[in-house]
Amino acid sequence: NKFNKEQQWATYEILNLPNLNEEQRKAFIDSLKDDPSQSANLLAEAKKLNDAQA
Rank of each mutant, 00 (worst) to 15 (best):
N1D: 15
N1E: 09
N1M: 03
N1V: 04
K2I: 14
K2M: 15
N4V: 06
K5I: 05
E6S: 03
E6K: 02
E6Q: 04
E6M: 04
E6L: 09
Q7Y: 15
Q8T: 11
Q8L: 15
W9N: 10
W9F: 14
W9L: 14
A10L: 05
Y12E: 15
Y12R: 07
Y12A: 14
E13K: 05
E13L: 06
L15T: 08
N16H: 10
N16L: 13
L17K: 00
L17S: 01
L17G: 00
P18L: 06
N19Q: 04
N19S: 07
N19I: 01
L20G: 00
N21F: 10
N21D: 12
E22K: 10
E23R: 09
E23W: 11
Q24H: 02
Q24F: 01
K26R: 05
K26M: 14
K26P: 00
K26S: 09
K26T: 11
A27V: 11
A27F: 14
F28M: 04
I29Q: 04
I29W: 04
L32N: 01
L32F: 03
L32I: 15
K33R: 14
K33S: 12
D34T: 12
D34R: 11
D34L: 14
D35M: 10
D35K: 10
P36G: 06
P36S: 04
P36H: 04
P36V: 05
Q38N: 02
Q38Y: 04
Q38I: 08
Q38W: 04
S39L: 13
S39N: 06
S39F: 15
A40D: 08
N41E: 13
L42H: 04
L42R: 06
L43A: 07
L43Y: 09
A44K: 13
A44D: 12
A44F: 11
A44V: 11
A44P: 01
A44S: 11
E45G: 03
A46K: 00
K47G: 03
K47S: 07
K47A: 06
L49Q: 07
L49Y: 05
L49M: 12
L49H: 03
L49P: 00
L49K: 05
N50W: 01
N50S: 10
D51A: 14
D51Q: 13
D51E: 12
D51K: 10
A52F: 13
A52T: 09
A52Y: 10
A52L: 14
Q53F: 08
